[in-house]
Design a protein around this nucleic acid. Sequence first.
DNA 1: CTTGACATTAACGTTACGTTAAGGTGTAAG
DNA 2: CTTACACCTTAACGTAACGTTAATGTCAAG
Lengths: 250, 250
Amino acid sequence: MSDTTYTIKQIADIAGVTTRTIRYYDQIDLLKPADIRVNGYRYYDRSSLLRLQQIMFFRELDLPLEDIRSIVNRPDFDLIDALKKHRITLQKQQTRLQRLLRTLDQTIDSLTGTGEMSEKDYFAGFDQSQYEEEVRARWGNTYQTTQSQQKWASYSPQQQEEIKAQSGQLIMRMVGSDPSASPEDAAIQQAVGEYFDYLNRYFYTCDLEFFRGLADMWVSDPRFAVNYERVRPGGAAFVREAVHHYCDTH
Amino acid sequence: MSDTTYTIKQIADIAGVTTRTIRYYDQIDLLKPADIRVNGYRYYDRSSLLRLQQIMFFRELDLPLEDIRSIVNRPDFDLIDALKKHRITLQKQQTRLQRLLRTLDQTIDSLTGTGEMSEKDYFAGFDQSQYEEEVRARWGNTYQTTQSQQKWASYSPQQQEEIKAQSGQLIMRMVGSDPSASPEDAAIQQAVGEYFDYLNRYFYTCDLEFFRGLADMWVSDPRFAVNYERVRPGGAAFVREAVHHYCDTH
DNA sequence: CTTGACATTAACGTTACGTTAAGGTGTAAG
DNA sequence: CTTACACCTTAACGTAACGTTAATGTCAAG
């Protein structure tokens, strides 16, 4: 029976990690050497290797080392429960990542210009936004889900083109071109007022509070935000401030 | 025109972060105060707020602050390219997370005992393992993908039951019950040898090198690993060492 | 005996802040 | 005018899991 012993580098290479990792595991009492000789060298044996391989398995699952220590130290540890809890953590991460990827794709699309959002999508966005729940919670039934879409569909193609052009011009004016301008400047506020009227005329029956909420959404939902960011960096936040000021003073 | 200024707490509350965050952003030159008065207090203005909101947008996308600094500092920064690269990072994370979740589910299932892997799945696992590519790369066509499945299907239900029972007993014997035992102990090696014969008789035509590779897979693929872990923590790694020793000495 | 690969400890760097600690400032109420 | 109390400041340590030097000691081979 060969009494297999490993130096720190040997066991590290087998496990596919660096010697620093092995020393660190020693330091935090996760994997102690089987033997330390007079020269101060760490020596490991077969059971060390088995233990290390167990550690690697759980590490691959992104479990924190402290949890792993509990798992490998105490045989009576409730492993199943720990794994289930960990599963929930990973699940949340995944859900968040999916959301981020959607947001990112939309942002890239809009910045690239290829996926320019049509007016139809634009207003459909209001209705089917990922923030719909939030909007509903705030305004309840005063806000008709399909109101804007129905209204939009009732226009002739020609009318739709005209309305789109108006929207584009108003947005440009609301964002402005001067980075040093203030959202409270008269010209900006004028444009905001016109946009408010524009919304009421062609899409919603919307009061000032609802208008304010929309502006918040334009910032937090990238599908809208990019329309302003494209005009000027920081454009979305700028318009939000402008709308807030408008609502404060009317 | 109200010259809006904010104290550090005010701007932090608006952005939904702590004052520590704002101070940190000052420290790393990401967001400098608009003004520092004689009392040493930081004061921010509207443009600070807009900039901060831009920062928050990109932070939400998990972009590192250093990248964000480049984005908000230099208007000529290639934002689209940066976002596309970032997308790849997130995509990789997501793919990995999906894999981890699968592994975790399988591990939990097996530990719970509800999802006990049937023999059919067990050997189907060999064929359709996520490591199939790896296995193929190592043994090429000497390994017939469907060989084990066909062989298994050719047995009568009664025969299958007997074979399953044999497998269970052999696994128990290979893993052993003594945590201080060595994989090289005679009893263990005897069981390993019987398992090798068992595989050859009922499933594969498999040589020692292939047997060694299988043992590696039992450790790295949790669907197999848990069968050994259930017998005893560290069981999978133990069996691998035992099989390796067996192959070394035959 | 030298060379080169390997071993050791110590200590700082990483990311994006959280968390004290010790003390200064602003403002409103008594 | 004092006293609360909320707010501000800097400084410094803590986090997770190592990576990366730096300075130094040890072992095996030629």
